[in-house]
């Protein structure tokens, strides 16, 4: 009698725990579709690349285009800007990483690394960067700030001629999107 009871109890314990576990794991798994539906959907992911013709851009002129719903700054830099950006010692930078999607994640933030495309081509005249302040996502203003680069009016971040953060609360240099030259004057972003 006593053996039967012990057996019953352990059988029941097992069934209770097994049922409870399947219920809990099942509920947890069922949560995933509810969470994942909020991630970027297929139509958003499909809008991946944009072409841009650099030829009409005059020296000292910058334009803002839209890629993946985000502003992208393309600037034809002046000789003076390029010279100043190149002369800036790396030690003076707040963020020493290039933040260039076309380069390894630890590439240093030299001016050359800021204008390198996905094929390794360097064209220091044209700077292509995502126009979103790395602090809280505002769009910085061009030709402004203490370093004659970009200035974010929201919380006062100053970026230099190569889009590198120099002063203010932003933690990172402006991001460089993945892009490559498809001819001497044409790029494709994304």
């Amino acid at each position: 009698m006593s053996t039967t009871t012990a057996q019953d109890v352990s059988r029941r314990d097992f069934l209770y725990i097994a049922t409870g576990t399947v219920g809990a794991v099942g509920t947890a798994l069922a949560l995933w579709p509810f969470i994942d539906q909020m991630n970027p959907d297929a139509s958003v992911l499909a809008l991946a690349s944009t072409e841009f013709d650099l030829a009409p851009l005059q020296e000292g002129q910058g334009v803002t285009i839209k890629w993946r719903g985000k502003p992208v700054f393309i600037r034809h830099r002046t000789e003076e800007e390029i010279k100043k950006a190149k002369e800036t010692p790396l030690a003076e930078l707040k963020d020493p990483i290039a933040r260039n999607a076309n380069l390894p994640p630890d590439a240093p933030a030299t001016d050359e690394n800021r204008v390198k495309d996905g094929t390794g081509k360097v064209n220091e005249k044209y700077l292509v960067q995502i126009g979103i302040c790395t602090h809280l996502g505002c769009v910085p203003l061009g030709d402004a700030g203490d370093y004659q680069g970009w200035f974010c009016p929201c919380h006062g971040s100053h970026y230099d001629e190569a889009g590198r953060i120099r002063k203010g609360p932003a933690p990172r240099n402006l991001d460089i999107p993945p892009y490559k030259y498809i001819s001497d004057t044409k790029i494709v972003i994304g």
Partner: peptide, 9 residues
């Protein structure tokens, strides 16, 4: 952030 946005912006 991308999860909150449901996109890249």
């Amino acid at each position: 952030v991308q999860w909150l946005w449901g996109g890249f912006s």
